[in-house]
């Protein structure tokens, strides 16, 4: 079977961010992902959309779930997938990002999936290679497939995105997940709030169309979706917050704080979780959590994205 049953067209050659996508583009990717869920649930999971194509996962930052999710998505579409991570590459030996890009480009890949610690690094790379590029996270800038999988999870559970109140909580300052989600959810008509201590809220964030809270009780009031963010270990001590203990007390999602939200509010987390820092185990594993479902949606969204870009490949 093909999941290209309907006429769903995506007009972009790369996926560098949610910025630049129209609401229609986002809907197309979510509809394609919806179909792709079925692919992964069959016994025979293999399609031929990317047969003969080469996909390179180029990860300058360690990642288990995003990388394996892209790898599975590529394989289920029939592509040859190569994983390149920084630890085993020559980047550590002083080769620049662009040298690496040119080297890989000479190997004639069809799609490169890139994660890099610096904002804008994926854009820089995309300008220098001939193939399609997917941003798997660049610094604190964007992580578009995460936002798409979050949206897909919300849409499947609530049937819509428009009009929902979504609260994004924790380290907004360093979070690419927060930025991509803000762009996507506001584009589709959700009311987005960000909640965190002021030291973890970036300047001018309200100008991105969100409501800003520094108190969980107020921020979670009437929320339909509670999206927790990972607090990076190196940011836990002293610099931005006094201690993980204090952070958990005021911003960690436990059952008490979850009660401030709507009774049927859903809990999301991009993973990996710091249990007892930003989220309590009882909530993470509780009935309102959709964290495991997010992982399944992640594969579906990446199948959808890679498949959509395939249409723009030469001879595609």
């Amino acid at each position: 079977m093909s999941y290209h049953d309907r006429e769903l067209t995506f007009p972009h050659r790369h996926l560098l961010g949610i910025e630049g996508l129209s609401p229609q583009d986002i809907d197309v990717l979510l509809d394609l992902a919806e179909q792709a869920i079925e692919v992964s649930r069959q016994v025979e999971k293999k399609l031929s959309t990317l047969r003969g194509r080469t996909l390179i996962n180029l990860f300058f930052e360690a990642s288990t779930r995003t990388q394996s999710s892209f790898e599975l998505a590529g394989k289920r579409l029939g592509a040859d997938v190569m994983n390149m991570s920084v630890a085993s590459s020559s980047v550590k030996k002083g080769e620049t990002l662009l040298d690496t890009a040119m080297t890989l480009n000479a190997m004639r890949p069809d799609i490169i999936v890139v994660r890099h610690a610096q904002a804008g690094a994926v854009h820089l790379l995309a300008r220098k290679v001939d193939c399609s590029v997917v941003n798997a996270g660049d610094g604190a800038h964007e992580h578009p497939t995460q936002a798409l999988l979050d949206a897909l999870t919300i849409r499947r559970n609530r049937g819509r995105i428009a009009g929902l109140i979504v609260a994004i909580c924790g380290d907004i300052l360093h979070s690419r997940v927060a930025r991509s989600n803000i762009l996507l959810l506001t584009a589709l008509g959700a009311r987005v709030r960000v909640i965190g201590p002021s030291t973890l809220l970036p300047a001018g964030i309200a100008r991105m169309g969100v409501e800003v809270f520094t108190d969980m009780k107020q921020g979670l009031q009437d929320a339909d979706i509670v999206m927790m963010l990972r607090l990076q270990r190196e940011r836990m001590q002293g610099g931005f917050i006094p201690s993980p203990k204090e952070f958990f007390r005021f911003f960690g999602l436990d059952e008490e704080k979850l009660n401030y939200a709507r009774p049927d509010a859903l809990v999301l987390h991009p993973g990996p979780m710091n249990r007892g820092v930003e989220i309590d185990s009882a909530v993470a594993d509780g009935g309102q959590s959709r964290i495991r479902e997010q992982v399944e949606m992640g594969v579906a969204v990446r199948i959808a994205v890679l498949g959509a870009l395939a249409a723009h490949l030469p001879n595609g």
């Binding site: 910025e19 930025r179 300047a203």
Partner: peptide, 8 residues
């Protein structure tokens, strides 16, 4: 705002 949007 602009730095925040760029993630810088």
């Amino acid at each position: 705002e602009f730095a925040t949007r760029l993630g810088l």
